[in-house]
Nucleic acid binder design. Sequence first.
DNA 1: CAGTGGTCTAGACCACTAT
DNA 2: TAGTGGTCTAGACCACTGA
Lengths: 265, 265
Amino acid sequence: MLKFKNKNHNKIIDKTSFTPVYYQLVKILEKEILNGMMPGDALPTEHEISVHFGISRMTVRRAIAQLVQAGMVYAEKGRGTFVAKPQLDNLIFELDGFYAETQQKDMNPNSKLLEVRIVKADENIFKKSSIPIGTRCLYFRVVRKVGSEPLIYETKHIVYSKKKPLLEAELLNSTWSNLVANNGNPPVRSQKTLQVKLLNDHEAKALQVSPITPAFSVEQVFYDIDNNPLGWGISLYRGDRYKITSHAGWAGENYSKGVDFENEQ
Amino acid sequence: MLKFKNKNHNKIIDKTSFTPVYYQLVKILEKEILNGMMPGDALPTEHEISVHFGISRMTVRRAIAQLVQAGMVYAEKGRGTFVAKPQLDNLIFELDGFYAETQQKDMNPNSKLLEVRIVKADENIFKKSSIPIGTRCLYFRVVRKVGSEPLIYETKHIVYSKKKPLLEAELLNSTWSNLVANNGNPPVRSQKTLQVKLLNDHEAKALQVSPITPAFSVEQVFYDIDNNPLGWGISLYRGDRYKITSHAGWAGENYSKGVDFENEQ
DNA sequence: CAGTGGTCTAGACCACTAT
DNA sequence: TAGTGGTCTAGACCACTGA
């Protein structure tokens, strides 16, 4: 019997199952680690595991690789594989939902185009985005609402091409990267900066809040494959309405992560 | 000769090299994709690649798996493997540096303990952290500075155990998760919330800024393996000094990501 | 020295896609 | 039906660790 440090292991792998063997093993090892193993404890060797379950060592390695990827274990050449200490001090926030959350949920999301026009990039735009001075850009401002409540204020510049004129509906509904891709030269990378800012009078008015309301500022620059800037935008998210949650470590069943914008306090 | 859509491929794999074959192939494929392939284009089949380079299909699969992991390509059963469209609209910010950056850089980082005492968890603490009302907690407040400039204001509660008394130096210098681990019941997961807040008078005074300064608020709760809360803390980062940068898409050489706290604007 | 994880091979069978 | 990616095997050799 294979010993997982504290107790005999009696799980079995069903080779006829539709779920892959390596994945069954991942789940077995996860459970074994969660129930009674401590950081630093050694897992059985790959050879032991493969013999015990009657599977190939390559399959065992695939399962372990997945646990390494998840940060649950680490392997050391010539020594063994060990339970890792959960990494809890690094903070990773995913802001996918910043946009998506407002869109779903039959909350009547809607947007208002405040201004559109063609501008030539000036010193300021160049400094922020490295778009060369004089470049013709499509400039527009949008307020995004849920119901009658404004939540996001966006200011964007897109390097202009006559190829395809953009319709108002596109400006409001396309994703940022799709808009930037408009001229056929697709963006392949983007640089983002997250800051906190106090809204100025103008922004506060557009968002219908008092001018001293704090806000998340997300600034993005998109580049094509040759590192030419294609677009630059700043989105302001009302700080009184948005918070970002994140989770780290060995997730239990109740894993969650996302953005709320309907919060107390 | 293997055709990578646009041109003949003349790279070669050195099987005697110290760098693994699969990794050489990853780099070759990356270069091939960056130079002239577009999202949606098909890669050569795994079989074609293995024959062309004279390597096993399993090794080819390992290289491709790495590209899938990186989000550069995607595979479809029965169809083939294709170049992916870079995901640029989801925002992922890593705040590892929030702490680390201030520590390095011979910038004379230093911390000041404002208060320590034992408290019993009240209604408010319970609501924020789910630490049961009445639980004895170590409560302390710290200001972290670089040189003479205060940057971070922290308020923390740790579920108290008599096991190991904590020294002042530990409170100031240990990582948050190490402090929480003090009582021998290690934290295995944490929940975090990022918000923007206006500093109140008390916080602003501690950070030596005007009270209407906005700040990042990072709130963390640590749990043990049985989902018992072990600690709860709020860190306030001066919004005028911190910004968080992030990068997405097909990284060129000049990949960068992190936290700056010495910024213009 | 024996044991470990890291790499790699040359097959095999499968489910799926397209024709 | 032919071709694709997904899984799995039973070996092999290597570099590294520890006694």
